[in-house]
């Protein structure tokens, strides 16, 4: 049961909020990283589409290697430090085009999250990634817990 308001985020968004709010999203091959600071009672969630910015166009947070550091920086600005943060990773389902897995984007999205969190020395305390199903998640900032359901109708 969420006591505060819940904010839904779309692809390319980062949202920081505080207890007792919640942040939710729906993921296919995209990945959402949830960061939680239990001391401050604040948390953040991002939602990115592709693992790496390829050098063309804007460096938007729809790329994991842009979105994750940006989210960490924002948490630090709110008073968190890597020591007090814990991370959870969700999404990265495999997509298929014509029966074959294309480019393994879901998997690469998950790998980039693990690599960047490792660089920042932020521990991953839970994850539910990969597979064939989309996911719906709700990050409860009061308890730092993520409720997750597999999407019942999802063409991923």
């Amino acid at each position: 049961m969420i006591h505060g308001s819940s904010t839904f985020i779309h692809v390319g968004q980062i949202h920081i909020d505080q207890s007792p709010g919640a942040i939710s999203t729906v993921l296919g091959s995209c990945v959402a990283v949830c960061l939680y600071d239990s001391k401050l009672g604040i948390g953040a969630m991002n939602h990115y589409l592709l693992p790496f910015w390829n050098g063309n166009g804007l460096q938007t947070p729809k790329f994991g290697n842009i979105s994750i550091p940006k989210m960490i920086e924002q948490m630090v600005l709110h008073g968190s430090s890597a020591k007090t943060l814990e991370a959870k990773i969700f999404g990265g389902a495999s997509m298929s085009i014509g029966g074959s897995e294309a480019m393994m984007i879901g998997e690469k999205n998950v790998l980039v999250a693990r690599e960047i969190l490792k660089e920042y020395r932020i521990g991953i305390v839970a994850e539910d990634v990969g597979g064939q199903n989309g996911r719906k998640i709700q990050f409860d900032l009061e308890r730092g817990k993520v409720l997750m359901k597999y999407a019942t109708r999802c063409e991923v």
Binding site: V26, L27, G28, C30, H47, L49, M95, N109, E155
Partner: peptide
């Protein structure tokens, strides 16, 4: 470029 399934994402 291959992009992820944005129909589900978001």
């Amino acid at each position: 470029e291959a992009v992820a399934d944005s129909e589900a994402c978001g």
